[in-house]
């Protein structure tokens, strides 16, 4: 077993718990001993657009210090937002003067020494596990199910923090293929779902989600997968009443199902894919 420090983020511990369970099953099946980092705090969700945003890096860096304290060199995230904020902060403190300022502020923690790599589920699967190994572990194949691969925005933007080519991503499609599914790279797969507007302006989210789901259905999909618990929530719960009834699942849950996890009741339509 290979140890892997893990930052769950708030969503995975609240409404997205089933997503976490499926993903952890899949990671165990792939030989990872996942260790949740102790006393983690919220990543801050959205990075600040202010130029002088040092304070917004304090939270993410504190998490990176916890990873350092575990003696680990990298940390896994399962959420597009967490990935973005942690990765940016890891990058931010590469400049020595900024690192010194943050360390001076964080005077109750050990100094951060930098050099922690932030990985997302998708980059882990592509760069370390590999699609072949993924395919070799499949116990239940998706059996040609048409799966729309929804990236959303944060995974691919801005360019320097993208998990894949921001114009022509393919990592999610390749994962679906490895599981025996037929990926449907539909036109709106990189559109923003409205993210946290879901709290204050859910009407905007509903409007966007309607467009995204119609595009997926129009391309012939039976299922939509996401790799962000927030996108998953928005696409599944904020859809307009007239939108296609496409199911929307978190990719890790589909992985868990394919690797033989006890089938949660809500994994329709995978039950029929066997």
């Amino acid at each position: 077993m290979k140890k892997l420090a893990y930052f769950p983020g708030c969503a995975m511990k609240d409404q997205a718990r089933p997503d976490e369970a499926g993903t952890l099953h899949a990671l165990a099946a792939l030989g990872y001993e996942v260790a949740e980092i102790p006393r983690w705090n919220c990543c801050g969700t959205v990075h600040s657009l202010a130029k002088d945003d040092l304070m917004r890096h304090v939270g993410p860096v504190r998490n990176l210090i916890r990873v350092q304290g575990m003696g680990e060199k990298r940390v896994l995230t399962l959420c597009a937002m967490c990935y973005g904020t942690l990765k940016r902060s890891a990058q931010f403190v590469r400049e020595e003067e900024r690192l010194a300022r943050i360390n001076a502020f964080l005077d109750t923690e050990e100094d951060f020494r930098g050099g922690i790599e932030v990985v997302h589920l998708l980059t882990l699967l592509r760069d370390e596990v590999g699609y072949e190994k993924l395919a070799s572990r499949v116990k239940r194949t998706l059996n040609g199910l048409k799966v729309a691969t929804y990236y959303g925005c944060v995974l691919l933007r801005p360019r320097e923090f993208a998990v894949d080519d921001p114009d022509r991503p393919e990592v999610m499609e390749r994962v679906v293929e490895a599981l025996g599914g037929a990926p449907v790279p539909f036109p709106e797969r990189m559109e923003c779902c409205g993210a946290y507007l879901t709290v204050g302006r859910s009407d905007i989210v509903t409007d966007r989600v309607g467009r995204i789901l119609r595009s997926a259905r129009g391309s012939g999909a039976d299922l939509v997968v996401t790799t962000c618990p927030l996108c998953q929530f928005n696409l599944a719960e904020r859809r307009p009443p007239v939108a296609p009834t496409l199911p929307v699942l978190y990719l890790g849950q589909v992985l868990g199902w394919a690797f033989g996890a006890d089938e949660p009741a809500n994994l329709f339509p995978l039950g029929g894919a066997r």
């Binding site: 801050g44 304090v58 504190r62 964080l106």
Partner: peptide, 9 residues
């Protein structure tokens, strides 16, 4: 909350 920990101190 920005996780500054000032409250704890």
């Amino acid at each position: 909350c920005v996780a500054c920990n000032t409250c704890t101190k």
